[in-house]
Design a protein around this nucleic acid. Structure first.
Length: 848
RNA sequence: GCCGGGGUGGCGAAACUGGCAGACGCACAGGACUUAAAAUCCUGGGAGGCUCACACCUCGUGCGGGUUCGAUCCCCGCCCCCGGCACCA
């Protein structure tokens, strides 16, 4: 064997894999499938180590599953539409199409140099018309079903990116991409009716047993279900127009001493007209409205309000209560109006205290009427109702049901479920995205582009101005069309779709990526999907992952998919930090994988990233750690090198059983099989890839120890003349046991260090390649070991050890313990009360 | 405030969920080999005590209790860190 030059191995094996199409697959119902997917990449230009971690995790799993006999689909693609490319075009004049293709080419090279086992023939990019055509097709299906609709609404606007943002894309009051505080605008926009699935999306989180708890919690919070009631408070002087409020605490309604309208509430402007001073009324309401968003989201803004001068009737008490407008009532949640109960709600209490509004206690912990006088804090817990008419004496829980039923019976209220989740606004006033396939005709209104005219191709435009309007609107040949219905003049929609539409179903397209007649063949998806293992950053916990769950249900309801949940298992990998911070170009702390590959080869990098910590944990990059992994690979290489002459050849045969082996040989066989068990379980069951690598390291250490004991001087010691000492070994059993250990080791290293493993595999005499080889077989009998050391605890302290056969019966174990001199010494003169044996291990003797 | 996840050597971590705490690695120290260095191989290491030494003893998984022959793991009460949501009625 030559010296270890990983860079050459990388090239050699990557070429071979490509030539043999080693990772391409076809559906085969006779074999179990495994769909392993990493979140596809935005082609930003260069992948740093943090990105690569994701792909390496997926690759370890994909390679292992392949060796374990699964038909593995492991594809990759590009989330290629998006703002950065367009912004770059505005800045430097390079068309997004060109920069995107360049970036894809470069990043693809990086992934290939890492030896990730992708089925590249299935590669897709969302900016290809053959892909986004199906975004448009699906949009039209959703339009037909009422799941896509257009309405004017106030939306989040990012003044830097010059576009609308979905609620999910507003993070801490700012744009998810650039952090700029968002503004509010009123625009005609397209929405996807994700709220139609709110209940299902929430309930089904319980079925996602292989998702991280953290992500499920975030999704549940985001959907935000609350059960309550809508109750009508009629206007005192106009009982025909009631104010409808949403409350989760109808049990406190007798304590509702005023009503609050959000500044956006439609009634506000009507009351203003009727008021004594409409001008100042409107001015104040307007002041609250512009306060919103940035200010409201930025933290504790002081509660403010003003009295409208009008009153509403509390339908339970029949008392007239004042109507105020308040800045903290959200127009977009519930009905945009609330019944204020200052005695039992923090916010209402604060408001009532400030404006000296009446506070009425109607729930107390013990059901005793509250003493008159001022309270200094609201009672927000459940309790027993007091001063609540016929409902007094009920517990809050009982009252919620009974009072809701009462309101329902009387016709002024009903039980309802309120979600925080809102419909997904998908219109973007930008160029580099999927054109929305809609046409506006004066006569026929909104008309979808007929299917046979899809795709609506993105026109190639030359100038990127960065002005805050849709670039497509400046292309007359795009805008002006004839109406598909009447043939008259019409104009196209000029907004493009949110790029999260592209990424909400790409995993289905991978199952059938070149289909020209439909988004995918349902049969192909039925075989491959759902995705068995999905890996990506936690930053998509609510964006991409909730949209994809929504789309899966849309496809299901179109009859194209037979499941609701697209991703069976989810792993959110931790970020790779450098100097305690996330890597980014602007911070200048990017670890460039290309130079690492140059220096240590792909395998050392892969191994290090897998070994340093469990996949979902954040890690700090360490050059020394990478060198350590390189050392390990060299160490394995030397081990194989030293034994290769001895163990090569057809006639070696296989190790079998433990009879006739020396203790050292038995120990090595045991270690080999114990390692197989651990590595297999760590990868497949737990995705604890760091401990899988540890187990491999232990096996290598064991091999060194074995060699040291078996062969004088041991292998790989100092000078070259010592190197082939292993050649002196003549004992057939030794050769077999070592060969078995090395074969198992090399196979199990393949997912982590595929190039090195392939080369060693070849030098072991196999010509068909590891990619097609199988995982080493586990022999539980061998792993069980022939004689084991059993700790003996006396009163909870380990006092001695017994050497016993592994299959010793419990009573024999007890007997042997009581017979053993060392144990006897510890229990001398005492009475044995109890002997505890756990899983065949004697662990405790309780004496008095 | 609410929800979720965590606190284990100098550091990253492990203990496959009640059975020898600290595997594996990084950094460090010592030795072998070398004219020397690098590389390599071997050895050491939680803290404290006691030994010439082998050994042995005590304490030790954020803090305080509990259950158990036995607790990093289970229960109760705290403290701290990280992440998410947050005037959602």
């Amino acid at each position: 064997m030559p010296d270890y030059h990983p860079q050459e191995l990388d090239k050699k094996w990557q070429k071979r894999w490509a030539a043999s199409r080693a990772f391409e697959v076809t559906a085969d119902p006779s074999r179990p499938k495994f769909y392993c997917l990493e979140m596809f990449a935005y082609p930003s230009g260069h992948a740093h180590v943090g990105h690569l971690r994701n792909y390496i995790i997926g690759d370890v799993l994909a390679r292992t599953k392949r060796m374990r006999g699964y038909n593995v689909l492991h594809p990759f693609g590009w989330d290629a539409f998006g703002l950065p490319a367009e912004n770059a075009a505005i800045k430097n004049g390079i068309h997004p199409e060109i920069s995107t293709r360049d970036n894809i080419a470069h990043m693809k090279g990086q992934l290939q140099r890492l030896g990730i086992s992708y089925a590249w023939e299935r590669e897709l990019a969302t900016c290809d018309a053959e892909y986004y055509k199906w975004n448009q097709w699906l949009f039209i299906r959703m339009f037909e079903k009422g799941l896509a609709y257009r309405r004017k609404s106030s939306v989040n606007w990012c003044p830097v990116d010059n576009t609308v943002l979905a609620n999910e894309q507003v993070v801490d009051g700012g744009c998810w991409r650039c952090g700029t505080p968002v503004e509010t605008r009123n625009l005609e926009q397209w929405f996807f009716r994700i709220t139609a699935y709110a209940d299902e999306l929430l309930d089904a989180t319980a079925t996602l047993t292989a998702w991280p708890e953290k992500v499920l919690t975030m999704q549940r919070n985001w959907i935000g279900r609350s059960e309550g009631a809508r109750v009508k408070f009629p206007l005192e002087d106009d009982p025909g127009t009631p104010i409808e409020v949403f409350t989760t605490r109808i049990d406190t309604i007798y304590g509702s001493t005023f009503v609050l309208l959000g500044p956006e509430h439609p009634l506000v402007s009507r009351l203003a007209e009727k008021s004594k001073d409409p001008v100042s009324f409107k001015r104040e309401a307007q002041a609250f409205r512009v306060q919103d968003r940035a200010a409201r989201l930025s933290g504790d803004i002081e509660k403010q309000g003003f009295d409208t001068g009008f009153r509403a009737i509390n339908p339970f008490t029949k008392d007239p209560v004042p109507i105020w407008v308040a800045n903290f009532v959200l127009g977009e949640y519930g009905t945009g109006a609330i019944m204020a109960v200052p005695a039992h709600d923090e916010r209402d209490f604060e408001f009532a205290t400030k404006y000296r509004l009446p506070i009425r206690i109607v729930v107390t912990p013990d059901g005793k009427p509250a003493p008159a006088g001022v309270i200094d804090a609201p009672i927000s817990n459940y309790g027993t109702l007091v001063d609540s008419g016929e409902f007094s004496g009920l517990s809050s829980t009982e009252a919620l049901t009974k009072m809701t039923a009462f309101a329902d019976a009387k016709g002024f209220g009903e039980g309802t479920i309120q979600f925080r989740l809102k419909d997904w606004g998908i219109s973007r006033q930008r160029y580099w995205g999927t054109p929305i396939p809609m046409i506006y005709c004066e006569k026929d209104g909104i008309v979808p582009v007929p299917d046979d005219q899809l795709p609506v191709e993105l026109p190639r435009i030359a100038q990127f101005t960065g002005r805050g309007d849709s670039p497509l609107a400046q292309v007359p040949e795009f805008v002006n069309v004839t109406c598909p219905k009447c043939g008259g003049p019409a104009r196209r929609e000029t907004d493009t779709m949110d790029t999260f539409v592209d990424s909400s179903w790409y995993f289905y397209r991978f199952a059938d990526p070149r289909n020209e007649r439909q988004p995918f063949d349902p049969a192909a998806v039925k075989y491959w999907c759902p995705v068995d293992f999905y890996c990506g950053g936690v930053e998509h916990a609510i964006l991409h992952l909730i949209y994809s769950r929504f789309f899966a249900r849309v496809f299901r309801d179109l009859g194209m998919v037979d499941h609701a949940e697209p991703f069976t298992q989810l792993l959110t990998q931790g970020m790779v930090l450098k100097d305690g911070a996330v890597m980014s170009k602007s911070k200048g702390n990017v670890v460039d994988p290309d130079s690492m590959l140059e220096k240590f080869g792909a395998d050392a990098l892969r191994l290090y990233v897998m070994f340093v910590a469990p996949p979902e944990k954040e890690v700090e990059w360490s050059d020394a750690g990478l060198e350590g992994s390189f050392r390990f690979l060299s160490r394995v290489w030397r081990m194989v090198e030293n034994w290769i002459e001895t163990i090569a050849g057809e006639g070696v045969g296989h190790a079998d059983g433990l009879v006739g082996l020396t203790p050292a040989e038995r120990a090595l066989r045991r270690k080999t099989h114990d390692t197989i068990r651990r590595v297999t379980g760590d990868i497949e069951q737990r995705q604890q890839l760091n401990t899988a690598v540890s187990a491999l390291m232990e096996l290598v250490n064991e091999l060194y120890t074995f060699s040291e004991q078996t062969v004088t001087g041991g292998p790989a010691r100092r000078n070259d003349e010592d190197v082939n000492r292993a050649g002196q070994v003549e004992r057939q059993q030794t050769v077999r046991v070592v060969r078995e250990a090395l074969e198992a080791l090399v196979r199990m290293m393949a997912p982590f260090a595929p190039h090195t493993a392939e080369e060693m595999w070849e030098s072991l005499g196999y010509s068909d390649g590891l990619a097609a080889a199988s995982w080493p077989a586990f022999d539980p009998e061998v792993a069980k070991a022939d004689e084991i050391e059993v700790p003996v605890q006396v009163n909870g302290k380990v006092r001695a050890h017994l050497m016993v056969p592994p299959d010793i019966a419990e009573k024999d174990l007890e007997a042997r313990a009581l017979d053993d001199a060392a144990v006897k010494a510890h229990i001398a003169g005492k009475t044995v009360k109890k002997v505890v044996v756990v899983k065949g291990r004697l662990v405790s003797i309780v004496v008095q």
